[in-house]
Amino acid sequence: MIAADDPRIAYVNGDFIPLVDAKISVLDRGFLFADGVYEVTAVIDGKLVDNAAHLARLERSLGEIEMGHPVPLETLTALQLELARRNSLNEGGIYLQVTRGAAERDFSYPKDAKPSLVMFTQTRNLVADPRAETGVAVVTTPDLRWKRRDIKSVSMIAQTIAKQEAAKVGAAEAIMVEDGVVTEGSSSTAWLIKDGKLITRQLSNSVLPGVTRLSVMALCAEQGLEVEERTYTVDELQQADEVFITAATTLVMPVVKVDERVMSNGAPGPIASRLRQLYIEMAKKTAVG
């Protein structure tokens, strides 16, 4: 529940307004059909991290569902920065959502609906996240999602169920599994390290093309770390030397427990920890603001 005195400012279709007053139509297709896409950009030192890649993924998602842009991408960056400024957001994230807009309820795409854009901020500890010092636990769970997971859809009920299953046992993330192989986390990309080699799922319609994943792969290339993109089983994950997850809101997060299997002797692994440090350094140097 949003507190009545929540001081945050939201952006709704051209206007910056108090979050508590932010509203959309009950006929908005994002509400009725989950007919929309979203992005979450990390903010560090008041600047946008990996934002060009986030907006490129947004553009791709919009194209895959034949949805128009609510505003030009360069305007969107300016709006994000203004929203961060109005909320005095130093560290956290900006959530943005684009839907097909409000129209009479009908499954077919409406011809005259105007895309809707909403954004809000969330303050988070990203750089000094205490979980990075201890590592996190994850659990495996069946992947219940649709077949176009490469589109960052606002339809998140399967991920919500998975995340709740993790929360029930005190885990930070659910690692989703399909036909015996790992797809990804409910809100992250999953990685394992074995014999010095980093392994993560190859891109396809089965997984989201993670933005933080992309940056980590670039860092691995710079550091001479070998990365193999392929499918892998739960058993491989549990038998790994190290496991970590990547996402805009967790950056690079070491995993110390997969189901009942303790990883890295119960402490964050050295490669994952180093990659987290390198990613934070890169983010601070390249963030836009």
Rank of each mutant, 00 (worst) to 15 (best):
residue 221 A to L: 13
residue 218 A to E: 15
residue 232 Y to Q: 03
residue 229 E to M: 12
residue 233 T to W: 02
residue 89 L to N: 04
residue 124 R to P: 08
residue 156 M to S: 10
residue 82 E to R: 15
residue 81 L to T: 06
residue 129 D to A: 05
residue 168 K to E: 12
residue 146 W to R: 05
residue 65 I to W: 11
residue 76 L to Q: 00
residue 240 A to C: 10
residue 60 R to M: 13
residue 131 R to Y: 11
residue 32 L to M: 14
residue 178 E to V: 08
residue 42 A to C: 06
residue 221 A to W: 08
residue 84 A to H: 04
residue 260 E to T: 15
residue 256 V to L: 05
residue 36 G to W: 06
residue 200 T to M: 11
residue 95 Y to Q: 04
residue 242 E to S: 10
residue 164 Q to W: 14
residue 188 S to L: 11
residue 12 V to G: 04
residue 76 L to I: 00
residue 190 A to L: 08
residue 6 D to A: 03
residue 99 T to L: 04
residue 269 G to T: 04
residue 173 E to A: 12
residue 1 M to G: 14
residue 210 G to C: 11
residue 61 S to E: 11
residue 279 Y to Q: 10
residue 163 K to A: 15
residue 253 M to L: 14
residue 168 K to I: 12
residue 179 D to N: 15
residue 234 V to E: 08
residue 269 G to R: 07
residue 181 V to S: 10
residue 166 A to G: 11
residue 243 V to M: 02
residue 26 V to T: 04
residue 61 S to Q: 11
residue 73 L to N: 13
residue 264 S to G: 00
residue 137 A to R: 14
residue 252 V to H: 05
residue 16 F to Y: 15
residue 172 A to C: 09
residue 152 K to H: 09
residue 63 G to F: 09
residue 251 L to E: 14
residue 66 E to C: 08
residue 134 T to G: 03
residue 93 G to L: 05
